[in-house]
Design a protein around this nucleic acid. Sequence first.
DNA 1: CGCTTTTGACCGGCGC
DNA 2: GCGCCGGTCAAAAGCG
Length: 262
Amino acid sequence: MVATSVTLDLNLNPFCTTLDDHVTPVREVAYVDDDDDHSFEKEVDDHTIDDLSRESNENKKLKEMLIDIWDKYNSLTTHVKKLIQDKEELESSPKKRKFDETVQQSLWKRPKEELPISGIKRVYVKVDPSDKSLVVKDGYQWRKYGQKVTRNNPSPRAYYKCSHAPLCPVKKKVQRSMDDDGLLVATYEGEHNHRSTMQEVTYALANEREISTSESGFHSPKLDEVLVEQMATYLCKDPNFTSQLAAAITSKVSEMDFFKVC
DNA sequence: CGCTTTTGACCGGCGC
DNA sequence: GCGCCGGTCAAAAGCG
């Protein structure tokens, strides 16, 4: 049976925008060994070359699969958003539309001219229906300041302020969807005037890495460890990530068992 | 001890 | 003026 190797690139660069960047294998690390200057001149036998080219092919296939999955994910997301939007438009009678406009205008008790509608964003998040917490993970830190049961929805609505308040004016409301228990609706008002927690970590470490690299000519493997630890800590707090990781591992194990049988 | 969450009270807008 | 409703406040409780 052929040993498979999987490269888990966690997208550590928040500024990378293309999928190609996203799935590019982690860059190589150069080590200097003063005691043995000839360590790079070791003979490489044919088996090693075969192994390397096989793994390279597998990596290429995995990369193609990732690109395919990413495309499908994007098109599905767009489709779901469109369906939800269509449904909302259909359901809102003229009376309800008027009510919604009133709510939008009275949001945060500010005059309309100070509250551009474009500053209000609505985000739908799929969660476990049995999970009754009104928490939407978006990379920012929030402080809950209220909870209310509203007239049109038996599920309570939670009110959050950005933990950087009053420096950051962003607020959000989170409420379970009336139609779907497994759907949380988060309404954001305003724009953050600071980075998210995730961006802070990656930006700080990227700076640290840059300084270290420019000083020594090489970057320290220790920095990679720190970075990976930070990322792991962050991602492990995300139940979606952990469940999807578990599913991916299960799938991979089943796949390997299948090859064993073959 | 400091920060966050909970929860009842309070406020202001709106319709009748 | 009154009641309803969404949004906010603030004291108490919880937690690390």
